[in-house]
């Protein structure tokens, strides 16, 4: 059973970062997450593989360029709050 509701996931950076990859797919809007590190910060916070990233720290990033979104997360410091939802819900 897939949860289609958007999820707010707050995480604290670990020894190897937040524990996920942020990807962009050619000719498709939105950024998606995969390679969520098992038991890593993102996993513990409730992020799942193939989730679509909607907000970073309360700011909607759906229409932001990829590099800007990566910069937002990197500049967030040791904690970041992401709003994600499953690909199907998006």
């Amino acid at each position: 059973k897939v949860n289609h509701k958007p999820r707010v996931c707050k995480m604290v950076k670990g020894p190897s970062g937040f524990g996920f990859n942020l990807n962009m797919v050619k000719n498709k809007p939105g950024l998606f997450i995969n390679e969520v590190q098992r038991h890593g910060p993102a996993d513990v916070a409730g992020v799942e593989n193939n989730d679509v990233l909607v907000e970073v720290n309360g700011v909607n990033v759906i229409n932001e360029p990829y590099d800007n979104v990566v910069a937002r997360i990197k500049e967030s410091g040791d904690t970041v709050t992401l709003l994600v939802c499953s690909k199907d819900a998006y």
């Binding site: 970062g17 937040f18 990859n21 942020l22 990807n23 962009m24 797919v25 050619k26 990197k74």
Partner: peptide, 12 residues
Amino acid sequence: NMISLVTQKTKL
């Protein structure tokens, strides 16, 4: 296959 179409990828 979605993986083959990934154009940007960053480990965070």
